[in-house]
Simulated scan of single mutants.
Amino acid sequence: MRRSRQFIWVALLSMLLVGLVSWLEAQPFGNESVAATKFDFGLIGDLPYNPEQEGKFQNLIQDMNKTRLAFIVHDGDFKSGSTLCTDETFYQRYNLFNTFVHPFIFVPGDNEWTDCHRANNGGYDPLERLAKLREIFFQGNQSQGKRTIALTRQSNDPQYSKFRENVRWISNNIVFVGLNIPGSNNNFGRTPEADAEYQERNAANLAWLREGFAIAQRNGSKGIMLVIQANPGFELAPTDPNRTGYNDFLAALEAETVAFKKPVVLVHGDSHYFRIDKPLVGSRSQSRIENFTRVETFGSPDVHWLRATVDFKDPNLFSFQQEIVEQNLVAH
């Protein structure tokens, strides 16, 4: 009898330990509510573009869902530049993103709104499509995903009430900022209506950028990460028509990065070329700004993801690892 009781207690204890481990693995590590000195999160973008990639995207979802991540960020372009900008596509992607088990934050790209005026996109009004994106993707103050985290939206400020897509969250005192800065020259230089939209959004973006850095400074944050969709053209001349819509952003980014002095990372997509480099050069000094790093995510046709790590013991704070989804490799 005594041995039977001991066996029962051992079995119960084992079940409790298994349950505790499962519960811990499900907790929002990387969120400000849990103290940690190291955490991982995922970065993706420019996906999925077509039915074939939608199938591969399911492999990516499975791969990321089984990985312990604090959250996932999609840096824009959830469809190709020649796919119709229909409500149906928008809702399909919204539901798709909610199949991730981790908190999911989406930052809009040009294929979702600025380029929707194209005939092969359906000839939509880009401003109407942006309003629809805000209605579908950016309601409430929680992320997408089966597990969510709280987000701070710029629209909480009455002065910027329409800019629900600009978000901020803090994980273990690291500040993360999402900004609506899309490709196609940031919607600048095409029509007078687009230019007016750009001017208003550009002012909001600059205010949100500066506020993010101010909070990081005030909190004593060890670093800050910014996420946009556009490749802002670091290598282009300021007068280049592909860069004029980003000049104000890049000037503010340089000034804030130099003043911050600690690690700053800009994540973007757009040009579909995975890279990690240091392209920010001082406008006056013409010397490389060493505390700045640019990360460009994988994009179509490569259906893979990046694992980003914050490690307080690492002098660089941020590090990045390619996560190649084997099922999505193209046979040569």
Score class of each variant (00 low, 15 high):
V177I: 12
S155Q: 05
N95W: 12
R129S: 12
G183I: 00
A196S: 12
Q92D: 14
G140I: 11
F138T: 09
R93M: 12
P108V: 05
R129F: 07
I61F: 11
P182Y: 06
S155F: 02
P182T: 07
D110G: 11
Q159Y: 08
G145T: 03
N187I: 04
K146D: 11
Y94G: 04
F100G: 02
E193H: 08
L69A: 02
Q154T: 02
D110T: 08
I72P: 09
K132M: 15
L130E: 06
L133V: 10
E200M: 05
V175I: 05
P126A: 09
R118H: 03
Y124T: 06
S161N: 15
S161F: 15
G76P: 08
R153K: 10
D77V: 01
N205I: 01
D125E: 15
V107A: 00
G178E: 03
D77S: 02
Y124E: 13
F104L: 02
K132V: 14
R201G: 03
F176S: 10
L127Q: 13
L179N: 00
V101Y: 07
I105F: 00
A204Y: 01
S171Y: 05
S80N: 14
F104Y: 03
E165L: 03
G76C: 09
V107C: 01
Y124N: 09
S155H: 03
I174L: 00
R68I: 10
P126N: 09
W113N: 04
Q92L: 12
P108D: 05
V73Y: 01
T83D: 15
R134K: 14
E88I: 10
K146C: 09
H117Y: 15
I105K: 00
T148G: 05
L130I: 02
W169L: 01
T99V: 04
T89W: 14
D157N: 15
A70P: 04
K79G: 12
G76Q: 09
D77I: 01
N166T: 09
N202Q: 12
G123T: 06
G76R: 08
I170H: 01
A196L: 07
D125Y: 14
Y91N: 07
I174T: 01
Q159W: 03
P103E: 00
Q92E: 14
L179K: 00
N121V: 13
N120P: 04
Q199A: 08
V101W: 06
C85W: 09
Y94F: 13
Y124K: 12
H102Y: 05
R190W: 13
Q139V: 08
G81K: 09
Q159H: 12
E200I: 07
S143H: 07
Q142K: 04
N172I: 08
Q199W: 04
R134G: 13
V175N: 00
E200K: 06
R129Q: 14
R164P: 06
